[in-house]
Amino acid sequence: MNRPRPALRPVPAAATAAPVIEARGVSLTFPTADGPVHALKDVNLTIGQGEFVSFIGPSGCGKTTFLRAIAALESPTSGQLTVNGMTPDAARRARAYGYVFQAPGLYPWRTIAGNVSLPLEIMGFDRADRQQRIARVLELVELSQFAGRYPWQLSGGMQQRASIARALAFDADILLMDEPFGALDEIVRDRLNEALRALWARTGKTIGFVTHSIPEAVYLSTRIVVMSPRPGRITDVIESPLPRDRPLEIRDSKEFAEISHRVREGLRAGHSDHGDA
């Protein structure tokens, strides 16, 4: 995935192009037996076409809840949230996004190609179109020669790549990823991070990426959203000054260390806020 290839479509020069996801004063409260839990409080954020935005913060900071709200898997209790100018639910029905979870969630009774084919079958793509799309996305995640294998024949990292291919297969412009590499070891994680950067550069997708790894967030993102818990809120938004072309070694650079430091400070500040309150 990390070999240079011609881009499939022009990548927008400026990351702050047309807004794709807009949140205005979004709050989300879960009622529980111990009283309401404020998973999100007054979140304001605009994500532009082709941005790679990471959400980082400790457990309970609402990063996953915010991603799920964008995907219309949760409904905000107040505020305004639009995806491609529509309500999240309308966007979901218009297949605006592909979602990747922490676990690959592949069906053991389907081959890798069969798993990638599943959303396409559900969405009613015809057979020839399906074949073509499966071949294209499996090539994109470098699993072409494993199309006929079953999930249990593949390593964890390969399974997660297959689940990314599945999310890409129906050409949604937005890719939402909820700690997709959280369960993988660091070496595999590095490779997949590199591959994901390359995939993003090739396809120009808008990516929302939840993580609790600082290096992962800094390496991947054009923008890093730092969040803190109780109530879940945004404490800092960091524009990455790192160049578009990022070899893994960039993580040893001074700029990388500076951004990492700022993210860490943001996380610490959010934490002490809570301690004072």
Partner: peptide, 16 residues
């Protein structure tokens, strides 16, 4: 629940 969320993200109907 994750499997049901995936189905929902693909806008799958009850029959599917």
């Amino acid at each position: 629940p994750m499997q049901f969320d995936l189905m929902r993200s693909w806008n799958a109907g009850g029959g599917q």
